[in-house]
Amino acid sequence: MTSTEWPLWEVFVRSRRGLSHTHAGSLHAPDAEMALRNARDLYTRRSEGVSIWVVPSTAVTASSPDEKDPFFEPAADKPYRHPTFYDIPEGVRHL
């Protein structure tokens, strides 16, 4: 560990019947191949039919908590942004 670099990886797992990959956690691994194998052991117990993504943590750009207010300010006071004033015409299904 002292002489080798074991960077951090983020793990995303889609379960067999899941619709999307969900962040499951993170782990240390020397490369992507090993990260995949470790993720399989740690986060899926090798169940069949799951999909795993591993991403080096350095590749993830996160939104900054400091900019939270301007970034995520809800637009609830701007009702014209929400398509809520339409009557659904008859005959339109599955909307």
């Binding site: 560990m1 782990l27 240390h28 090993m34 194998r37 470790n38 052991d41 740690l42 090798r46």
Partner: peptide, 12 residues
């Protein structure tokens, strides 16, 4: 084991 992840693999 040399690292935690490898310990899990060997135990598996």
């Amino acid at each position: 084991a040399p690292v935690l992840e490898e310990e899990v693999a060997l135990a598996n």
